[in-house]
């Protein structure tokens, strides 16, 4: 695992990121790297700025200062069409799935495909949609509307929608929060399987220790605007700092 980390190039590089909302300082000089092929988890209490952090990476939020490189591009300097180009190579799984609720499951997947892969024929698109849905076990629900899906199914559907563009990086925002332990375990396995099949690099924001343990090569802990610890699950579990250890109780 550590070899995977050391031998590889970064796909995401964040340096000295600052973000303040009104008077609330959320990020205060955060720096990190994500290496190709690894899965890194960000742990942190609610409201510590984990979502803000990964939203900055796809420029849904513009930081006050700092430098962000994604797939060797300076994200904060890109023009809109260049940014869109990069964004299609980065998948983002929203906490509640964020499925388009006026469209069926199939249309949800076809929507990004049609707009970003105009070269594919109709049957190729259809086939890609079906393979992707099969890989998250939702092929039987292809014609359902999002409102007819359960919480766990929505997460898998959201994941399928990011996968259909075959991204190189996937950012997961709390993939298992709000799910029962069985469904959460399924999602964990899915994250691992996707990493193995597609060899994506992933960043997983989570509170869920089981999830962090199962999926991560590396873990960082965000606390009061900065990463206070980095390491493998085992290393952090026995960390000298009590604040860090407290996360693992």
């Amino acid at each position: 695992m550590t070899n995977k980390v050391k031998n590889n190039k970064s796909v995401i590089e964040v340096t000295d990121l600052y973000k303040t909302f009104d008077t609330k300082k959320v990020l205060e000089g955060v720096s990190m790297n994500l290496y190709r092929g690894e899965t890194m988890s960000i742990l942190g209490r609610s409201g510590q700025g984990k979502s803000v952090m990964i939203k900055c990476i796809v420029r849904l939020i513009t930081p006050d200062s700092g430098y962000i490189e994604v797939l060797e591009q300076d994200i904060l300097k890109l023009k809109d069409d260049e940014l869109n180009q990069i964004r299609t190579r980065v998948g983002y799984l929203f906490q509640e799935g964020a499925l388009y609720d006026s469209m069926t499951l199939a249309e949800n997947l076809l929507f990004p495909l049609k707009r970003n892969k105009p070269g594919l024929s109709e049957s190729e698109k259809q086939e890609l949609v079906e393979t992707t849905l099969r890989s998250v076990d939702l092929l039987d629900d292809i014609e359902k509307m999002p409102s007819e899906l359960s919480g766990g199914m929505r997460k898998r559907a959201g994941l399928a929608r990011t996968l259909v563009l075959q991204p190189e990086i996937i950012l997961y925002d709390e993939p298992t929060t709000g799910l029962d332990p069985y469904t959460a375990r399924d999602i964990n396995e899915l994250i691992v399987r996707i990493q193995e099949i597609y060899n994506v690099s992933s960043m997983v924001v989570t509170h869920d220790m089981k999830c962090a343990k199962r999926v991560s090569d590396r873990i960082v802990i965000l606390h009061n605007g900065n990463f206070i610890a980095r390491g493998t699950f085992e290393e952090l579990e026995n960390h000298e700092d009590e604040i860090v250890r407290n996360y693992f109780i």
């Binding site: 849904l60 964004r87 983002y92 964020a98 388009y100």
Partner: peptide
């Protein structure tokens, strides 16, 4: 409004559609 609060607008943006 409901697309905004359920992140659908953000989801559209990050999948390369303005």
């Amino acid at each position: 409004g409901s697309m905004r609060v359920t992140d659908q607008i953000d989801a559209m943006e990050v999948s390369g559609t303005n």
